[in-house]
């Protein structure tokens, strides 16, 4: 199985704060890797660095053997945890999903049948058919999240990065997201996703990593969860929370 993502000795510093400290991770094609860790553990930073949005202070990130920014446009799809967009922007659900096709389209190129099919497909698979012409400001939180996942899927990326896509969505949405992601993984797509939801970790992921600035444990989800590595930092975070308040 080919390697999709290789993170080695990755260090990311914001000013003087070390967000990530010598991270080593590997993700193979056709695998879903879950990242769990407390708030402020650097999970989102890790995803952003792999997406090429954050430049490593030291170490390397390679996606399909090269630096993320040098990949062909459309290779990486990233769904941030909180979409910081202007909800009054003149765009419908279909408009937003169509943006997923933009990176791979040449300037002035027309929206092809294949592009339209990819958009329709993504809208259908996230059950957004009834909402496709609705303005984005008229969606619920879960519907907004689904629209942004649909955009990522319409992109037909080679690597999918999801930052806590299940936070704040209902059980039904969580289940349909899981089915979609598992389907994409089965078709060979590598997926990296952060989550807070440990209960379903073994249904979502092939491998699980516990990250708190460093990789504390990594392996089969069951084994990692039973190892107590996550429980340890939870306790730790709890104590810290108390100390601060």
């Amino acid at each position: 199985m080919s390697v999709a993502v290789t993170v080695s000795e990755l260090v990311v510093r914001y000013d003087r704060v070390v967000a990530l400290d010598r991270i080593d991770l590997e993700l193979a094609s056709g695998m879903a890797l879950g990242i769990v860790g407390p708030n402020g553990s650097g999970k989102s930073t890790l995803l952003k660095t792999i997406a090429g949005l954050v430049v490593p202070s030291a170490g390397t990130v390679e996606v399909f053997g090269v630096a993320p920014r040098t990949l062909a446009p459309g290779s990486i799809a990233y769904v941030p945890q909180v979409e910081a967009v202007d909800w009054s922007f003149p765009a419908s659900v279909a408009d937003v999903v169509a943006m997923g096709r933009y990176p791979r389209l040449r300037p002035l190129a027309r929206f092809s049948k294949a592009d339209r099919a990819a958009v329709d497909n993504a809208i259908e698979s996230l059950h957004l058919g009834d909402l496709r012409n609705r303005h984005i400001s008229q969606l619920s939180g879960g519907q907004q999240q689904r629209a942004f996942v649909a955009r990522a899927i319409a992109q037909e990326p080679k690597l999918l990065l999801l930052d806590e896509p299940t936070t704040g969505v209902d059980a039904r949405t969580e289940e349909s997201l899981r089915e979609i992601v598992r389907g994409l993984v089965a078709s060979g797509l590598p997926v990296l996703m952060t989550t807070h939801d440990l209960d379903r970790a073994s249904e979502w992921f092939d491998r699980l990593a516990v990250v708190d600035r460093r990789v504390l444990a990594e392996g089969d989800p069951e084994t990692v969860l039973n190892s107590g590595a996550y429980a340890g930092i939870r306790e730790h975070a709890h104590v810290h929370g108390h100390a601060r308040s």
């Binding site: 949005l53 990486i76 990233y78 990176p103």
Partner: peptide
């Protein structure tokens, strides 16, 4: 204009 961060991640 709509979503600079995600646009950039996707290779724009």
């Amino acid at each position: 204009s709509f979503d600079p961060v995600v646009a950039e991640a996707s290779g724009i």
